[in-house]
Design a protein around this nucleic acid. Sequence first.
DNA 1: AAGACGAAAGTGGTTGA
DNA 2: TCAACAACTTTCGTCTT
Length: 309
Amino acid sequence: MKSQSIKKCPECGGINLFFNKEKGEVICKDCGLVIEDKMIDFGQEWREFDPETAQKKRRTGAPSTYTQFDRGLGTAVGRKADLYRLTNKSKNKFFRLRKWQSRISTAIERNLKLALSELKRISSFLKLPKSVEEEAARIYTMAVQRGLVRGRSMESVVAGAMYAACRRHEVPRTLDEVSEASGIEKKEVGRTYRFITRELNINVLPSNPIDYIPRFASSLKLSPQTQSKAIEIVEKAQREELTSGRGPTGIASASLYVAALINGEKRTQREVAEVGGVTEVTIRNRYKELIKELDLVENIKKLRKKATR
DNA sequence: AAGACGAAAGTGGTTGA
DNA sequence: TCAACAACTTTCGTCTT
């Protein structure tokens, strides 16, 4: 379960901070800013209470990470300087090992290096937290090991992994956004995403409209009150089973539209549709269902009249 | 003039035979 | 593998503010 602190995001003033204990990050769900990302890099990963545990836990080196192609734990078969101690037999063995090492390197590792730099580019373009980037790297590495890249471009698999990682970490970016960041067509991203999640048996929860709300709300410059109103509406809609089978972005957008209306912070359907990555028509359809089922009709009408006066 | 609304036809993906 | 289907989009005309 996520725990939220009382602090505000220095970048956008958003209140939706997400604290990831494992990675020691504080992420703003509104703008994606990673506020405290350095805890691992500069600090220890453990706490020392007494000299005994300190002895056990202390080690050297950077934390193991998937965003380095070899998880930051690379080995290389030794250099020639060591050779003079070896017999002829072991010399042969040594050379064989060297040969294989370099073959493996060129095939898989070079690909990984390339892919990971691409992944980093996309991740920073989308302002994603480090933990999501790591996840994407992990997924991509698995995909490579299973030979799932064959017949697909490396870039599209990276994009698919990225999208999957976002979903799993509940910091969803839409297919459109991933598509824009990666330069891969939306269809293609979706296709590889489905493919790799199926092949790797990655269970991805159906994305929750609520996860989109803070981000949409902040790009529409809506107040926190409106934001929580929108969340309230989504929850209500979910209870009425209005949400199943519908695109989560449509629901999120429509709820925001209604919430903004109620709180007198009206945005046009156009604007909301824009940030939600859906069309006005979809907003209208969802919006119609929402006010019908959630007996908000009266409220809305009253508010309309008030607003015009 | 811009926004809201709704009808109709088209698109891409899922499902079930 | 194909057809039916639901959700969503595009486009366009009409009404409202």
